[in-house]
Design a protein around this nucleic acid. Structure first.
Lengths: 204, 204
DNA sequence: ACTCATAACTAACGTTTGTTAGACAAAAAT
DNA sequence: ATTTTTGTCTAACAAACGTTAGTTATGAGT
């Protein structure tokens, strides 16, 4: 367990422990009894703090969604150049993921277990976020610093790259968020930035 | 339901229907009664053809794994140049995914529900496959046509890009496997191929 | 006509699931 | 000192789960 576990409300503690489990075994495969036992209490006791198992998943998914959305909002407010904006957006995204690998794993992979109503809202938020990235890429093309590529395609490639971090990042590894984001940005920019290639192997 | 459904053994039909469901709702959230009802029979009747629910998941995961592995085996036998090999490996990977979106979704996202024993074997196969990609990238660096990048990092980026197809590809869309693979290859090569950039915005 | 394999059925099993009701203990507020 | 709040407990619920047993229907080969 990482730091600061005490000092959290009991409800937030449950969410943290649940996120750990959901990441490990998946939402459906994790029972309320599993969560309870990880907290060394009985399953029924959980219901003094939370309404349902669904609510835990909702708190994780929407909590993370809000972080991503407000992050890209700030980026678009501050940074002017499209490349700078994209690089910063990527960094913020990477940072949010690496800051809480458990919750982001749940956010990325378990959201479809949300109850129907929440699911719809969640997908709306996710679309919004995706659209903010598309806007940056569009700007980059207008500003003539990005190649004229398929926008949707480019955005999906970018997001797939940044989200994949969740499969292999370890907090105690060599790379930290800044470095990872920089690597990914370079990789992505390689496919986006306008360039004059003098490559003996280049085929247009 | 796509073509050729009849003509399959009853067992294979069950696997096809199950893959559809597993993709839609996830393995844990799909019950044997769900599968049975989709086939318009009773749950108990399934057990005349299969041993267990686990067995269905195993058939899907290992069936797909074999396709991927034998594909990259052929690529390494035939194509000589590292860039050609990588492009063809990517194409084959994309083709396998787009050919069966249901089974590949299960392969990509539901494998951790495999029973412990199978899980270990599955991860071994997956590592092998990953390693074959790493080898191609290594060759590319030796042949001096790829940039000197972090190998593991590059491979993970490549695989994340190709696997992400499973999130958005539609068989009746504009792009087909060949075209998609070509786009992805270009994108990936942008980050790998040695180049001399004459970019007014380039910072080394 | 009889056999045999195939594929389905009904009924039920033991377990696990998310969740509720109501009692009890300790600490905080009055 | 007593009420209130907070957190936990035991016990149990109905529903859903994967699976088994034993039976019946269908069609092909003899």
């Amino acid at each position: 367990m990482s730091i600061n576990f005490e000092g959290l409300s009991r409800k937030e503690q449950i969410v943290v422990v649940a996120a750990q489990l959901f990441r490990q075994k998946g939402y459906e495969a994790s029972s309320m009894r599993d969560i309870a036992s990880a907290m060394r209490i009985e399953a029924a006791s959980l219901y003094h703090h939370i309404k349902s198992k669904d609510e835990i998943l909702e708190m994780i998914c929407f909590g993370m969604a809000q972080k991503f959305i407000s992050a890209i909002g700030e980026v678009n407010d501050i940074y002017f150049n499209a490349e700078e904006r994209l690089r910063e957006a990527i960094y913020q995204h990477v940072k949010i993921i690496t800051d809480d690998m458990d919750k982001s794993a749940v956010f990325l992979k378990e959201w479809r277990s949300l109850p129907a109503a929440s699911l719809q809202e969640f997908m709306r938020l996710r679309n919004n976020y995706e659209h903010e990235f598309t806007a940056i890429v569009e700007n980059g093309i207008q500003e003539d610093i990005f190649e004229h590529v398929d926008k949707k395609f480019a955005v999906l490639s970018i997001l797939s790259s940044v989200n994949w971090i969740n499969e292999w990042y370890h907090p105690d590894g060599k790379m930290q968020a800044k470095e990872i984001a920089s690597h990914i940005s370079d990789f992505v920019m390689g496919g986006l930035r306008k360039k004059l290639i003098t490559d003996y192997n280049y085929k247009p």
